[in-house]
């Protein structure tokens, strides 16, 4: 589904990713771990199309209608419409726009692109009510401006709600576990597990093994200084927890 080939990325002239290779198939969960500054967040943002990063070489291929398509040629909104989703590490406030209007506009933009019927208010509300159960979200959130005045945990839950609504084929979750207490972590990972199925794939960017107790990865990759230096199964994360990066990498 996703094939990252020899990806090199710079920002303001500093090379951050130095030849990433990564293949993700439908149904898989990949965890990407690594020390601060190793390029984890950059990788997920580049796949989603953040304009601040310059791809100096390499490819990001994504299957669209069973055709390999270079994502780098698509605008960020087209990537989203084709099923790429990024849950932000720091979700952005959108003052003056209610969560409901935001979700509805987003959902209907994607539907329109995919040729699916748009949902009018009553149908969309019903649809949304189901999705909100995934992350045990209070309906009051819908009438509040997007992320404004939300606690850290509420923002992260809101990201997963957006994911549930858009139902992406590839979800990139950038430190979705950071800033969550143990109860919120359970709720958020529960939501992700409900959305995950054999037709979609999840890439988790995280610092902590803790998340992987709830969402069990098929692969764990360790990113260091812009390269994937080690790949293993879920046990690699446990080793990491014991020995730290130094222990695992040496």
């Amino acid at each position: 589904m996703l094939e990252v080939k020899n990806l090199c990325v710079s920002v303001d002239g500093n090379e951050i990713l130095k030849g990433i290779n990564l293949t993700v198939n439908a149904g898989e969960i990949h965890a990407i771990m690594g020390p601060n500054g190793s390029g984890k967040s950059t990788l997920s943002k580049v796949i989603a199309g953040h304009p601040s990063y310059e791809v100096t070489s390499g490819e990001i291929n994504f299957d669209i209608n069973r055709q390999k398509t270079n994502l780098l040629e698509l605008e960020p909104d087209i990537r989203a419409k084709e099923g790429v989703f990024l849950a932000f590490q720091y979700p952005i406030n959108v003052p003056g726009i209610t969560n409901y209007d935001f979700l509805k506009t987003s959902f209907n933009s994607v539907c329109e692109y995919q040729g699916a019927p748009k949902l009018e208010d009553s149908d969309f509300r019903n649809f949304l009510n189901e999705k909100m159960k995934y992350v045990e979200m209070n309906p009051q959130f819908l009438s509040r401006p997007v992320n404004e005045g939300f606690s850290g945990g509420e923002k992260k839950r809101n990201e997963i709600l957006q994911m549930a609504v858009l139902n992406p084929r590839l979800a990139l979750l950038d430190e979705t576990d950071s800033g969550l207490d143990i109860d919120a972590l359970k709720i958020v990972s529960g939501g992700i597990n409900k959305i995950h199925n054999k037709n979609n794939a999840v890439i988790l960017v995280t610092h902590y093994q803790r998340l992987l107790d709830y969402i069990v990865p098929d692969y764990v990759h360790i990113l260091s200084e812009g390269k994937i230096v080690k790949t293993g199964d879920k046990n690699l994360a446990l080793e990491l927890e014991k020995g730290g990066y130094e222990g695992v990498l040496n």
């Binding site: 989603a48 199309g49 960020p76 909104d77 989203a80 989703f85 935001f102 506009t105 987003s106 933009s109």
Partner: peptide, 19 residues
């Protein structure tokens, strides 16, 4: 901000309009 909205499937125009 624009990237956030675009990554939710809204075009640049839709994103500016919403903000």
């Amino acid at each position: 901000q624009l990237f956030y909205l675009q990554s939710r499937g809204m075009s640049l125009e839709e994103s500016i309009s919403m903000l």
